[in-house]
Write a protein that binds this DNA or RNA. Structure first.
Length: 424
RNA sequence: GGACAGGUGGCCGAGUGGCUUAAGGCGCACGCCUGGAAAGCGUGUGGUGGGGAAACUCACUCGCGGGUUCGAAUCCCGCCCUGUCCGCCA
């Protein structure tokens, strides 16, 4: 969400940002309407406040006369008229305000200068780690998993539908192991506070992080309740401090949470549907940071390193990709995707998305901090990243560490969590 | 789900229609006092929006939203949340 003032003072900047996202044409009429609404809104505010000041003064005078047992009929009549005028103006103002808010909620965040313009073809690989295994002779994870008996796609589909999976035996245990490994690392070595949060949230929470009102069709909702299943722990965790004012001294702050994630994947039908590549329900550990605006660039790098560290501990080759503006999510100002190599499917799989949202989410969720006692509150910057998403990590682990006989040799860091070195 | 009791500023707490532009206290900040501190005394202490270069000023804000009224923290209606008890339940 943007400040109203952008429409007054910085509209060229906004237009440029939409241009870089390839959405100038889409948003130009929205921006134009926003500018007009902002101007009329301000005029109405002035008019209505003038009337209210008059009404307040009038009421004071009525009170004074009544105390002195003087006649106030004339003033009461004048007050009645003012009240009617105010009611009319306020109704109009409410309409303008609602329309303008809808526009401000609809406009995507402004990407940072270093984010390349254009669509995903302009995405930029910024670094690579490890040596991708040659895919020759490598099986895809769904074959390995079937052979190992750790993944039951058929029964997942029976119980819930396609895109829902059952993990069994070592597969189920692997999920629990990754959850513990990731949370342990983030709490013990990266300084995050562990939190356990609701996965069913109200509408206001979904608006706070930017999923609503725009992406209603991507969300699972509870009928008759106006509750939503979270698509990521980012939603409840970022909203922890909604409508609160933190102190500057407690920033930066980091939180780590495991949650299941629920996504309808409405626009992705038929894409990457095999095995563990794209699910309606999956598990993920998420890291979220609150920072000051000044610290947010370095915090973004730090958070991304925290996610990368997990891949390095698991020994999975990966690359860091800077998303172009057109591929960057609505709320994000800059996103690095971490993609781990899956030799069996012969692709890099997105296992983490590390974003800085600047003050976009903080405005929507009204999360502020006071730099020092007595100073004005400012919006925090919020950041988050997957650390990491399990199904694709499991796919990469199986494929990367597979042996010719179909067994899988696990990386050492998982041995204590799994109680074994080999699957199969 | 039902009954009852509540929701006031950072915190406690007064306040059943106009002399409240939210009393008083605590906390906090600054000042006086002091060799230094404590105590004491004094002053100041929220947020949002509009106007203004600023000083400042106007409006809104007593859980949220409506309503009654010239005027609502106060009266009415709906909702949310918290507590206690009952019911149900992992």
């Amino acid at each position: 969400m943007h400040d109203y003032r952008v429409l007054r003072d910085d509209v060229e900047m906004l237009r440029g940002a939409m241009e870089r996202r390839g959405k100038r044409d889409q948003y130009e009429p929205v921006i134009a309407r926003g500018i007009a609404l902002d101007a009329s809104r301000r005029a109405m505010i002035q008019a209505v406040e003038e009337k209210k000041a008059a009404r307040n003064q009038n009421s004071q005078e009525v009170a004074r006369r009544k105390r002195n047992k003087e006649d106030a009929e004339e003033l009461i009549a004048a007050g009645r008229l003012l009240g009617e005028e105010i009611a009319g103006l306020e109704y109009e103002l409410g309409q303008s305000q609602a329309d303008l808010d809808a526009i401000l909620l609809d406009l995507p965040n402004v990407t940072l200068d270093e984010v390349p313009a254009g669509d995903e073809s302009a995405n930029r690989i910024e670094k690579s780690w490890g040596t991708p295994r040659d895919g020759a002779g490598c099986k895809p994870h769904w074959e390995l998993a079937a052979q190992l008996g750790i993944l039951d796609l058929e029964r997942g589909a029976k119980i819930s539908g396609s895109g829902f999976v059952v993990m069994r035996g070592a597969g189920a245990r692997l999920t629990r192991a990754l959850m513990n490994l990731f949370i342990d690392l983030h709490t013990r070595e990266h300084g995050y506070e562990e939190v356990w949060v609701p996965v069913l949230v109200n509408r206001r929470t979904m608006i706070g992080t930017g999923q609503l009102p725009k992406f209603e069709e991507d969300m699972y909702a509870i009928r008759d309740e106006e509750m939503y299943l979270v698509p990521t722990a980012e939603v409840p965790v970022t909203n922890l401090y909604r409508d609160e004012i933190l102190t500057g001294a407690e920033l930066p702050r980091g939180f780590v949470a495991y949650t299941p994630c629920f996504r309808r994947e409405a626009g992705a039908a038929g894409k990457d549907t095999r095995g563990l590549l794209r699910l309606h329900q999956f598990d993920k550990v998420e890291i979220v940071r609150y920072t000051t605006p000044e610290q947010s660039p370095e915090e973004h790098e730090r958070l991304t390193r925290h996610a990368e560290t997990l891949l390095e501990r698991l020994g999975l080759p990966y690359r860091r990709v800077l998303l172009a503006a057109g591929d960057t999510g609505q709320s994000s100002a800059k996103t690095w995707d971490l993609e781990a190599w899956a030799p069996g499917v012969g692709k890099y799989l997105e296992v983490s998305s590390c974003s800085t949202f600047t003050d976009y989410q903080a405005r929507r969720a009204n999360i502020r901090y006071r730099p020092a006692a007595g100073e004005k509150p400012r919006f925090v910057h919020t950041l988050n990243g997957s650390g990491l998403a399990f199904p694709r990590v499991i796919a990469c682990l199986l494929e990367h560490y597979q042996q010719p006989d179909g067994t899988v040799r696990l990386p050492e860091v998982l041995h204590p969590y799994m109680g074994t070195a080999v699957l199969g």
